[in-house]
Design a protein around this nucleic acid. Structure first.
Length: 276
DNA sequence: AGCTGGTCCTGATGGC
DNA sequence: TGCCATCAGGACCAGC
């Protein structure tokens, strides 16, 4: 479940191995991802040296001198890293091999909601790319705090859960961590965002930072088919306090965890603990 | 059959 | 009325 922690764990597990390495070849087996993988991408990348891998929201930014490879994992995508020559035979959902001189990065994505795009350096700062331009603040950056969240939620009548998911107030909070953060902050997920005052915004911002940081620390989530790039499953699901636990006891008050649907997405919460 | 992680796009709605 | 921002729903898929 690639939410921000999973993407960050992926980034960290690849960056040390691949930064400074040269692309031997890019092989595209299935270009029908969310948008078609550009036909010229193989020629664009062959022989080029990867400078570094950054992250913006849930996007990975593979920086080269002449441009940036933008990748997104969608709902089911993952990058796996193999030592050179050690990759197993390609499976049915392995769509791209990014072959470096020392290792192979392989993109797997059963549902194909992910993306692999190219941004030319000549077209300017990648942060101004249409996919990145309207993203909210990075939750783990120092610039994200209660005051920032308070400003970003003014005039927003939608439920706070849905404003978190929208990604224009703060990036990287997906369905799982939205429930977990709101539980941590003791805030009802149904509250219109504009009704949160500075106090609750401060609690929520702190909760988001804490939950995401803990998840990164734990190596990402292990729900469904996620695994970090070295294949080790994440542990976060073992620590989820409300997500996926409807009917079981609230870890704080012991009352049952509820499941509701907001915007066609499941929300898990404790009606007793989340009314502050 | 119905549910599942993300998010772009479209068309509708609502405030000024 | 018109403009703009926001909102809600649909779309993309495969696997369980």
């Amino acid at each position: 479940m690639p939410e921000l922690p999973e993407v960050e764990v992926t980034r960290r597990s690849m960056t040390g191995v691949l930064e400074g390495r040269t692309v031997r070849a890019l092989r595209v087996y299935e270009r029908r991802l969310r948008w078609p993988v550009p036909r010229a991408l193989a020629a664009t990348l062959a022989g080029r040296r990867l400078q570094r891998i950054d992250r913006r929201g849930k996007y990975l930014l593979w920086r080269f001198e002449h441009g940036v490879l933008i990748s997104h994992l969608g709902m089911t995508g993952s990058w796996r890293l193999y030592p050179y020559g050690a990759a197993p035979e390609r499976g049915p959902h392995d769509h791209v091999d990014l072959d470096f001189d020392t290792a192979l990065a392989r993109l797997t994505d059963p549902r194909r909601f992910g993306a692999l795009l190219w941004h030319r350096a000549a077209d300017g700062d990648v942060e101004r790319h249409p996919l990145l331009a309207s993203l909210g603040v990075e939750p783990l950056d120092p610039g994200f705090d209660g005051a920032r969240l308070y400003l970003a939620t003014r005039g927003r009548s939608a439920a706070i859960k849905q404003v978190l998911l929208a990604g224009d107030a703060v990036v990287g909070v997906g369905n799982i961590y939205a429930s977990e953060s709101l539980f941590d902050a003791g805030i009802d997920p149904r509250v219109p965002a504009r009704r949160l005052g500075p106090t609750r915004c401060a609690r929520l911002a702190a909760a988001i930072r804490r939950v995401l940081a803990e998840a990164i620390e734990a190596g990402g989530s292990t729900l469904r088919d996620y695994a970090s790039a070295d294949g080790a499953p994440g542990q976060y699901a073992l620590q989820a306090r409300v997500y996926g636990r409807d009917g079981s006891d609230c870890p704080v008050c012991g009352r049952p965890i509820r499941r509701i649907v907001q915007g066609q997405r499941a929300t898990y919460w404790c009606a007793f603990c989340q009314r502050r």
